[in-house]
Design a protein around this nucleic acid. Sequence first.
DNA 1: CATGAATGAGACTTCATTCAT
DNA 2: AATGAATGAAGTCTCATTCAT
Lengths: 189, 189, 189, 189
Amino acid sequence: MRKPNAKERILETAGKLFMERGYSEVGINEIINTAETAKASFYQHFPSKEALCETWLETLHDRSETHRGDLLNSDMPVADKVDRYFSELADWLEASQFRGCPFSNTSAVTCTESKGINHQISSHKESIRGFFEAICEGHFANSETDQQKAGVLFLLYSGATTEAQNLRDLWPVETARKAAAELMKNNRE
Amino acid sequence: MRKPNAKERILETAGKLFMERGYSEVGINEIINTAETAKASFYQHFPSKEALCETWLETLHDRSETHRGDLLNSDMPVADKVDRYFSELADWLEASQFRGCPFSNTSAVTCTESKGINHQISSHKESIRGFFEAICEGHFANSETDQQKAGVLFLLYSGATTEAQNLRDLWPVETARKAAAELMKNNRE
Amino acid sequence: MRKPNAKERILETAGKLFMERGYSEVGINEIINTAETAKASFYQHFPSKEALCETWLETLHDRSETHRGDLLNSDMPVADKVDRYFSELADWLEASQFRGCPFSNTSAVTCTESKGINHQISSHKESIRGFFEAICEGHFANSETDQQKAGVLFLLYSGATTEAQNLRDLWPVETARKAAAELMKNNRE
Amino acid sequence: MRKPNAKERILETAGKLFMERGYSEVGINEIINTAETAKASFYQHFPSKEALCETWLETLHDRSETHRGDLLNSDMPVADKVDRYFSELADWLEASQFRGCPFSNTSAVTCTESKGINHQISSHKESIRGFFEAICEGHFANSETDQQKAGVLFLLYSGATTEAQNLRDLWPVETARKAAAELMKNNRE
DNA sequence: CATGAATGAGACTTCATTCAT
DNA sequence: AATGAATGAAGTCTCATTCAT
């Protein structure tokens, strides 16, 4: 039987599985069985497992960037945007059963092998930092402080994500949220 | 030819390799070849790869706990202790080629499988948080603030470690260090 | 080099080896080496060694059932059919170097593990008993006696097979043959 | 800690395990762990696993021979002795969870390897046949008939044991018992 | 007599990938 | 574009046995 949209099905399935158990713990076989595709169909669309990973991360990144863009452009005070960000982070972590950040998780497993994957990871993280920089821009005493505060927000986000995963608990996110709120209060006025 | 101390050699070798490339990316074969042991010698001492991982994390944890204990008991102002902590974190990350936290990295790969491993991970992280709580105790306005600040330091540490790994750069640690220093300044007096 | 029909070669080879030395004494490696296949080709076609065993027994069973069907439908007096059965049993045992019944031999080794294998074994044995029941039906004083006699023939067959294997000698089959012949003589007229 | 009677403990433990799951399915490790003995203690007493098997079968054989001797010397009509034999066979099979005859089971797994084991098996079986010959001696028309009938009893015993194992049911033993009783009735007077 | 650590060989199974159709 | 069969390499783990103390 011939099924269309093999590529999409593979990508979606792999996404789910990678998310749930990590890139290294999910094999091609499981992916194609779950996606109900033939082995060779997989390699028709993706030259390798690594390439699939790259595409997956790219998709995730695009989606998350859109999300941050929407938040940034939304009509709210910046402090609220920050609060919203951490609030949604908590939701996401809970929904994904505390599986943490797919980019960091992938980074834990593919030290120096794939240039493409590493690039996805770092550019994703830079993008998030960029988001916080946009948030902080002009909010504090000077641009240097803006940058430092953005960095701190970025670290709070990252630490919260990592430790919620490690401890399977939401308190890191709540702590980060409070800290972020306080941080945003100490602004220029 | 018969070589003694297989267990030690295995543990040391595995530690090195797990550190470098992650638990999931290092196989038993590589471990025993590098350690120059027979496969059965491995299983004489460790019932499974997972058990080895657990022992490895346990060893790491003990070492790091000692280190934090020493720092805590050392004769310094608390702010200096914090600074020292982040300074040494930077050294460690650089020395380990930005491989990040072995506990978090392992967590990324063993979602819900092993109780023992998960316990090592969470108790290690709790121990670090405990360290920061000991640092902050009595340093701020009240005990609630102490706790919150300790949590923030913990998140800064975690975020710095994670993102230094993701970005292969030291700036997250430096940012965390600065933020931690400032945080320690806003104390009770 | 790539060879087609791996599945057939595996099944045939495994059949030969299992027959010769028993399920537990033949490893996957030996099977695939003899069959000149890759290990992964094996697992493409059989999910496990146990599954292979099941398929093997199934094949044997089908073949033997056909054989008994032919004998049953053949144009002979029933007593001759019985005699023929034991005569051919002797031939088979000698040809197979007194390796006995593959089903019983497998049963000796897979106590309660595999449902599938156990089912093959018991249904094979029931089928043979059914054969003797068909033979005896209407041959003796009443249907109860028919059944009892069929049971005895079945036990003679089984004992002969088992002990020819244990003693590496044909006398058990000859004894069974004589006993069966006498048994068939004491019929209703 | 130093435990005495290692040899006996090993023999007893191995007996239990071999009985339960078959010679080939029980490893040395399991035996010594269950018997709480050191590996080397095992090899102090038994040069090899095969030798252990031989000793085990020898022990079993001695025990069973004594049992048959007692039955033979007991003060009963021969027909009752036979009936008693099959009745006790049923008990044994049920008690051992239909694991069948340890000698036949071992035979299924050690085709031509060990002379010693094969000798144990065949001499055990010959001993049982000898028992039935002693039973039948002088019971029938002539010595030739005595022998043939003894052979049939032997096959009934063997078939009943084998098939009770295969089918996990007692009916083969009951069928054999009835057949044996009838056989003993058709005697010389 | 007793022991725990060490061993080579091999058990079964899965990996990511490629071939021929 | 899609497929199922084939593959070498590697995965984790166990086998029966032997060594040094």
